[in-house]
Design a protein around this nucleic acid. Structure first.
Length: 116
DNA sequence: ATCGTGACTGGGA
DNA sequence: ATCCCAGCCACGA
């Protein structure tokens, strides 16, 4: 409805929830889909309250494929294990192989009233 | 109202 | 190659 900024958070949650299992996406990608291409930080801030929302925030990494969210997860090992259990592979640096597992979210069409 | 911070990103040195 | 700086948006104090 008329919500503006709050709607932004909702979009982030929606997108994160749509991340396919075994795939990951970046803050920047989500930000762009949300309409704030230039502010990936805000995405992380939104997820800050999403950790308890039951969203697969462990599938969200930075553009390098590093699990930066481990700070709020408490254990980076946990996040890595979660991704590994989904089939995601890491390189020697411990980064997700973005070239293989990066998932590009699609823009949320507001006009999806008909046809699904 | 302003100021500072942050789960980021890109470009420059 | 690595390190540093500036930009960006939203929120808490």
């Amino acid at each position: 409805m008329g919500n503006k900024k709050t709607d932004f958070f909702d979009r982030v949650y929606k997108i994160v929830a749509k991340i396919p299992k075994g795939k990951v996406t970046t803050y920047g990608a989500i930000a762009e889909v949300c309409g704030i291409r230039s502010s990936a930080r805000t995405v992380g801030w939104a997820l800050n309250g999403a950790t308890q929302s039951g969203l697969p925030c462990h599938r969200v990494v930075n553009r390098l494929g590093a699990l930066t969210g481990k700070v709020h997860f408490g254990d980076i090992h946990l996040m890595e294990e979660l991704l590994r259990s989904e089939g995601v592979e890491f390189d020697e640096k411990g980064y997700v192989i973005m070239k293989k597992y990066f998932w590009q979210p699609k823009k949320l069409t507001k006009s999806r009233k008909k046809k699904n």
